[in-house]
């Protein structure tokens, strides 16, 4: 089972994603953290997320790029947070964005439950410099590939889940 969760800034995506994992029976739960921690704001963000998911039985894996090389036991539950950070790392920090979709496909094959968190960054109507436009374009490609492989796609709107693909709630 693979679930893609999208939504805007501060809409409750992470909280919802954690609830999805916590309400499923998989014993082995991994949280793949992709964000690079480089300033005080990101330190606070990590602290907030860690507090939020404590007691939910996650093992945290810090992995900023190259998810395809991760070796996880098959049948485990994985929460990957999040695709925009992963893409930024692969694009702007000496990685390779082309390996993201194959890595997601291999996680999709291996995991018993895979929850992918992405971000809706597509609707502010701003035309950005070329490099940012390319980032937006590539993120949309990653999102669409993830949505295609996902059994469910959910948009979280201020804590309310909307089912874009795949029917009803699994929480």
């Amino acid at each position: 089972m693979t679930i893609l969760i999208t939504g805007g800034s501060g809409c409750g995506k992470s909280t919802y994603a954690e609830r999805v994992i916590a309400s499923n029976p998989h014993k082995k739960r991994y949280y793949i953290a992709t964000m690079q921690v480089y300033d005080e704001e990101s330190v606070r963000r990590v602290a907030r997320h860690r507090a939020q998911r404590q007691d939910k039985g996650f093992t945290t894996i810090e992995r900023q790029k190259d998810l395809g090389a991760l070796e996880l036991e098959s049948g485990c539950a994985v929460l990957l947070e999040d695709l925009p950070n992963l893409l930024a790392n692969e694009m702007f920090d000496g990685g390779d964005p082309e390996r993201i979709i194959p890595a997601l496909e291999s996680l999709n094959d291996r995991c018993g439950l895979l929850v992918l968190v992405t971000n809706d960054i597509f609707s502010d109507g701003v035309v950005y410099p070329d490099m940012t436009q390319e980032y937006i374009r590539l993120l949309s490609r990653v999102n669409r590939a993830a949505a295609m492989m996902a059994d469910q796609v959910i948009e979280v709107v201020y804590s309310i889940p909307l089912y874009i693909k795949g029917g009803t709630s699994c929480v």
Partner: peptide, 22 residues
């Protein structure tokens, strides 16, 4: 709804969008 754009470089704008969401 103000949170569905590229994460702003400006810390104040970034905080504003997230605050509206929360």
């Amino acid at each position: 709804e103000v949170g569905a754009g590229v994460v702003p470089i400006d810390a104040g704008e970034r905080a504003f969008r997230e605050a509206v969401g929360r």
